[in-house]
Amino acid sequence: MSIIQLNQVSRHFTKGRQKVEVLSDLDLEIEEGDFLALMGPSGSGKTTLLNLIGGLDQPTAGSVEVAGRQLVGLSSRKLAQWRSRNIGFIFQFYNLLPILSARRNVELPLLLTRLGGRQRRRNADVALAIVGLADRAGHKPGELSGGQQQRVAIARAIVADPRILVCDEPTGDLDRETADEILDLLELLNREHGKTIIMVTHDPKAATHARRTLHLDKGSLVREAA
């Protein structure tokens, strides 16, 4: 059963008088529970595609249906609500709030729910345990290594139990060994917790952790590797 369906999706940007076509007439279907790697050269439209799936951007044309919801035409308020329930974001540079502890960072998405403070902290601790950082809950991002910070970011992404994880170069800022640990963790979340994962990466080795890989070039899908 497909959880993500894009039909005839185009996205262009305007720079001055110039129209830059980033995605053109793209069709894509992703099954629930899939782990998809998106690869391609810089400017091929990977991140734009990821932003459309994550509800951070709207296409110029076409339809984007994710987790049973047509995202095209939704107001920014409705999109924000939808994202908070359905998408977990993992960024290349972690995007943690430096003044908050790991636990408080992980707790952030739960502030948008009706959970009470104690339950929020309990859920945050569970998410931190899943990523192997139960003993670092009180540490601030500045006191953690890059790999640990990305684990905190992953805990934040899963704490509200979204169906889809959207990862933009999640290992782009990490050494090989740490990157492999993070990718193993993503695999675990896909395999054991049933999360659908879409991951943009430049790294062919990272892509091997995914179930399948899509290659983009000049805004179009060029080939698919199993």
Partner: peptide, 14 residues
């Protein structure tokens, strides 16, 4: 900027 954008990406409203 990034911090505010991250919060908005997570679902916090404008």
């Amino acid at each position: 900027t990034v911090e505010i954008a991250t919060l908005r990406a997570l679902g916090f409203g404008s």
